[in-house]
Simulated scan of single mutants.
Amino acid sequence: MAFLFNKFQDAVRILAKSPTFARYRRKLQFEDDINLLFMYTSYNRLGKNADEADAEEIIDVASKASFTDQQMQVQENVHFQIKNFCTVMDEILLPGSAVPMTRPIKRAELSLRLKDSIGYSLDVKPSQIPHNEASQGLYLNGEANVGAVIAIYPGVIYSPSYYPYIPGYPRVDARNRYLITRYDGIAIDAQPWGYGGETREIWDSSTMQETRPDTDETMLGKALENSQVRCSGEILERRNPLALAHFANHPTEETVPNVMVCPYDFPLTEKDLRTYIPNISFGNAEEQKVRRLGSSWFRRGSRNSGLDDWDSDVPVLKTLVLVATKALCDEEVLLQRPLWYYSVDEDED
Score class of each variant (00 low, 15 high):
Y169G: 04
L293K: 13
I14N: 12
R303W: 04
R177P: 09
Q9G: 05
E57A: 11
I202T: 05
A245H: 15
I129K: 11
I92G: 03
E91L: 04
E109R: 10
G194N: 06
N279A: 04
A245D: 06
W340G: 00
K271E: 09
E237I: 02
D51T: 12
L4I: 12
N145W: 13
V61W: 14
D309R: 12
P251M: 10
E143S: 10
D349G: 07
P164W: 04
K318S: 14
A16R: 14
E31A: 01
A174C: 13
K48F: 07
P104D: 00
H131P: 05
C262Y: 10
F5K: 14
T102N: 00
Y276G: 01
N77I: 07
E210N: 08
T211D: 03
S121G: 06
G301V: 01
Q336R: 14
W310Y: 09
P160Q: 00
L28S: 12
R25N: 15
H246Y: 05
M219R: 06
F298N: 05
K106Q: 05
F266A: 03
G221D: 03
V88Q: 07
G197D: 02
E210Y: 10
D54I: 05
S227H: 12
Y178L: 00
V99L: 04
E91I: 03
V61A: 12
S97H: 13
L112Q: 12
F8V: 12
L244N: 07
N145R: 15
F80R: 08
R175P: 11
Y169A: 06
C329R: 14
D32Q: 13
Y163V: 01
K271T: 07
Q70F: 00
F8L: 15
E31M: 02
A53G: 04
H246N: 09
E225V: 02
K115N: 10
Q228N: 14
I118G: 02
Q75C: 02
Q81I: 13
L317Q: 13
Q288N: 08
V78Y: 11
T218C: 12
R23L: 15
V290H: 13
T252C: 00
Y195G: 06
P278I: 00
E234Y: 14
P154Q: 05
P154I: 01
P104V: 00
E31N: 01
M1N: 07
A11V: 08
I280S: 02
T68Y: 11
Y139N: 05
R212S: 02
L112W: 09
L112S: 07
